[in-house]
Design a protein around this nucleic acid. Structure first.
Lengths: 253, 253
DNA sequence: CGCATCCTTGAGGGCCATCAAAATGCGTGG
DNA sequence: CCACGCATTTTGATGGCCCTCAAGGATGCG
């Protein structure tokens, strides 16, 4: 993956330097940041399409995504549905910490590097620093806000626009952690993955991608999404980035 | 609304007695329960379709729904979309406590009675009793799990099945707090509301409701949903209630 | 170079949106 | 009690989006 804007954070905190980047992170004290980095016990690499955590499994640690992409998926009637996607810096299955058992699966897309955080360290850290608990809570509620936006977009948009919306969201989220560039972003997503996110068949998704390409909105090819104009893409998808809690109307102030 | 199974909880804790009923509540100590009841500062009634909280507003208190129904809505391109529904006992806008500003609106459906909890009381209570914080966190993650299920169902189901799914979910959630009965439940939902939840037009929703009625799956009429067979309804919608974190595979153990 | 995965294209049909209009139910005021 | 206005529900006709079945082409890997 192409990292264009190496941040100071990333060098000082190689594992968790992108956690909440572009959101609350600027409000965190140096102690908070050190605390978070020290939560990590081990780092591991995973191959394509690995299932990191299966629905209903009781776990004693959560994962932070360092490199790659991760899906939240639910299976029903023998088919897999994608309910969310994660980019580097995301504290992916923190939900499992408070829920004990996850209602969904955590699946790798391409190869991924992840940091493992034992739940006992989380418990201890939160007891020691209540502020940290609020921060972790915030992070999971950010996921919920993204879920709501997906619901709204599934209710509102046709498949070509849903695809454009997904590209727009991923692009913005990558930017927040210094990834992607001004012409697009790299991604191991397949057309079938996009179909699983849109609630469409792979065939129709293929035609919709062709339409986006023909109309100059987005050019998705194996391994990369090229976008000519952010304005064109985002207006086509009715995309408003506020819900990501970056600099917009909803930002922390 | 018809309350069939008056619980001991409801009489001892008239305001918050249904919070997490059927979920973690059995694990709470009497102190926890008293603490939660004492969080409430005021109780108020609201008329039809009132907007309790608008997106982006900074608030200093959250609401628990005592009677009635509440929607989470997002507006886009001049249209309202419903991203979630709440039943009595739900701590509705707890998300606003950690996010500071909500990404969505909180709207009444019919008349509603709500309890108001000042954020400063929440902060104080959590500092005093860390266990309570985890509980509130759990409650918001339950909302996120329901969001994921909606995403999956929007991706998976046709409109008639989406409607059946919504009826099935509401019915189960009402049961957890002692509402509804074995033949269905009362609700002020209009067909247009159902359309807003399904991402369909009111016209198509009307035809879909007619189909459910003709096939004996569910009979929705002004003010009430009648269901002949839970088995028929739930299998038609591929409904599995585990994600509500009641007694199923995901329950706390 | 063979195989598996992914992508692409075509034809036919069903689900759902849109435009248009009418019937029903309900609260209000005469 | 009836008349009226309004929101809600219902029905019909037409067209577009998307699914299904079917087949073929491209890409990458061992």
């Amino acid at each position: 993956m192409n990292r264009t804007t190496g941040s100071v954070e990333a060098s000082s905190f190689p594992l968790t330097g992108d956690f909440l980047a572009g959101r609350l992170r600027q409000n965190l004290s140096l102690d908070d940041l050190k605390y978070i980095e020290a939560l990590v016990e081990t780092v591991s690499d995973h191959g394509d399409t690995a299932r990191l955590l299966a629905r209903g499994t009781k776990t004693d640690c959560s994962t932070i995504l360092i490199e790659g992409y991760i899906f939240r998926t639910i299976e029903s009637a023998g088919k897999r549905f994608i309910t969310g996607i994660h980019v580097p810096g995301d504290f992916v299955d923190l939900h499992g910490f408070a829920l004990k058992r996850l209602d969904h699966n955590i699946d790798c897309v391409g190869p991924a590097k992840i940091a493992l955080v034992p739940h006992e360290r989380l418990t201890a850290a939160m007891a020691d620093d209540p502020h940290l608990g609020r921060l972790l809570w915030f992070s999971t509620l950010l996921d919920a806000a993204v879920h709501r936006q997906w619901i709204m977009k599934l209710e509102q948009l046709t498949v070509p626009r849903r695809i454009a919306y997904i590209f727009a969201e991923i692009w913005r989220r990558l930017e927040m952690v210094g990834l992607g560039d001004e012409t697009g972003f790299d991604t191991p997503l397949t057309q079938n993955n996009i179909a699983e996110m849109c609630g469409a068949t792979a065939i129709h998704t293929n035609r919709a991608i062709g339409k986006l390409r023909a109309e100059g909105i987005a050019d998705f090819r194996r391994g990369r999404v090229e976008i000519a104009s952010r304005e064109t893409l985002e207006s086509f998808a009715d995309f408003e980035p506020d819900y990501l809690y970056g600099d917009g109307d909803l930002s922390f102030r």
